[in-house]
Design a protein around this nucleic acid. Structure first.
Lengths: 202, 202, 202, 202
DNA sequence: CATGAATGAGTCTTCATTCAT
DNA sequence: CATGAATGAAGACTCATTCAT
């Protein structure tokens, strides 16, 4: 395996080191405000070295987003409502939401990045992020539709509902990110799902 | 009256013209991506003219935000649940939400701006916007609390619920903004309020 | 006479008013630092009006210098050492120096201007000023030469001595300009001439 | 030693190269008239390179002045009139003046700069230069006073005399700077000191 | 004559990227 | 592989000057 080769491992470590520094700087200062200077200073490397590992500033940014999206995709799946004897849909949902939020909220810099990345002048990155959120929304939409089909959900405009759900979670992540002390994710998720599923009315 | 004076009216029109161009450019490219060049090109004016009406790039941005916030503040109020014979709370809520969303969604550029502006490195502007959204969130929070007190709402974490509600509306606005053809706002609001109040579960 | 015509007189008064404002602004801020804005604000006129009376910023500056140079030229003459029974040379010299310094020092703004004008990016003005000081130096030089011829002065390099004398007076003007309270010019001149003629040694 | 390191030496050379170019441009055009463009063009470097060595236009200007003032301060000292068997005061004076004028006149650009710099609107620089000339004037003043005390000089207003002396030297430097062919400094100094000490009268 | 809105050339400065060592 | 000096395109802002009213 490539990574067994020590030089390869080193190379990979340098990359990580740069990515982590960049993530922190992007989170602190935003895409534009983040200067290569700040990133290499934090990573303790020379200017040229940075360009040895990444083509450009946009490229690191992309790498960060791509990695996050890869991780998130792995945590979000279609909910199986057909297989009998499967885990009940609500629990599947709960587990997925917990896993997802946990990943995001654990890495505050990443959370900040994801929330702000849509508004970068790095057109490509913005587009890929849009695409990602589009995917999630589509997934939610299909979930709504099948939920309605099997009579679990009431009749709603699936597109609108999906957008509302996604927005809700983003709002919650934003709220959590701004807090110094995080409550247990499980509780948060329970509460949010309750609101999503049953609303706030008594 | 000042605006009756033709030169005053003209001056005011120029200002509008610049604001509209700037709004569009900011929406397209974000605060940093927006260049004075792009703004004046769109407004069909000379570089110097821009600075005749606004002190700086930040100043136009501020003007746009301030105007929007002024308009929105005028549409969002505490919901009166005490005065007997008053408009029923749910209708008050519905009317406010319609007025608010209508204002935002009608001006696509403004919507984009409001959705993204939280992440500008123009510290002052970001702060003012944060403050605005903070106000809205606080209003929602107090609405939750009084709703719980009078037994209208079930027991929720008001902070979290307020964040979720705000996020929901932002998500919906984003969704609406991305569509070419807008459905009637009344219908959208009815649906979204239904989801917020009763959830998606049957 | 032209100036008897009332409109001509008015025109001339406006010109004066602008010149005086400009003089003050130039003295305060230097040629570059002086903005048309500052000048017209002080003169209480509109932007366009300024250009009705002067072609450009450089033009007012030139006018100010030219006027000063005209005045100064009228006060500086060759010293007559030939006509018998004339006013003794030393007294002629003393009277001229008093008249000259008096004119300069009385108008502090003008003094500041004259001292700094050599270093303006207004090439023409700088050149004319150079020319003026050149004239004065030449006059002093010839005075030295004839003084040496008639055995009044000891043998010196006339060019160098003229430069030294001129510098001395500039230094003195600078010193006087920086003081809040001016001593009587007559005393200053007596002292300076003493130094110039007899040196500082006992 | 740091400068033994080749890259350090190169860096230092670049700095010199920029300083020299800047000095020439400042001398030609004055502080304001000097554009970064002109400086880098003369130094044959790119825009960014300039800012690699100096923070700003003001910073180069300061560096030039500071260096000159450091050099000049090293050449100007109090004249010792007390120690018996010391170098006679007049010779001390002569040596200092020679060293000083020699340094200034040798570098025509610097001379122009020093003569004009008092009138820059770069407030800080102007102030520092004023301070420097103030120091020199104060030194001359004290020299006058002690000269009077020990009965070497006749009674003069020390402030005025110091201003006159300083002006004289400035005038002489100006004169020398404008000449294509410089006479030996020693002769010039002998002549000027003669004028300063004994005046021009026979 | 007077006005002041409009102009646009020109300034300083920043910063992502390259490349010789 | 690593370095950091050098690059220059691009950006925000100023201000003398013009010209239609």
């Amino acid at each position: 395996m490539a990574l067994a080769d020590p030089s390869e491992r080193q190379k990979s470590e340098r990359r990580r080191q740069i990515i982590e520094s960049a993530k922190a700087v992007f989170a602190e200062a935003g895409y534009h405000g983040a200067s290569i200077h700040a990133i290499i200073e934090r990573a303790q490397i020379a200017r040229g070295t940075f360009y040895l590992y990444f083509e450009s500033k946009a490229a690191v940014f992309d790498s960060i987003l791509d990695e996050a999206m890869r991780e998130l995709r792995g945590r979000i799946k279609r909910i199986d409502v057909e297989t009998p004897n499967a885990v009940p849909p609500q629990q599947q949902l709960r587990e997925q939401v917990i896993a997802t939020l946990d990943y995001i909220v654990r890495d505050r810099a990443l959370a900040t990045l994801l929330l702000s990345a849509g508004h970068t002048p790095d057109a490509e990155a913005a587009e890929r992020l849009d695409q990602f959120f589009g995917e999630v929304r589509a997934l939610l939409e299909r979930a709504m539709e099948s939920g309605m089909e099997i009579g679990l959900l009431r009749k709603v405009d699936p597109q609108l509902a999906a957008a509302a759900m996604l927005g809700m979670f983003r709002g919650v992540v934003e709220q959590l990110t701004s807090q110094t002390h995080l409550p247990p994710i499980e509780n948060v998720v329970a509460e949010v799902l309750m609101i999503a599923l049953r609303g706030v009315l008594k």
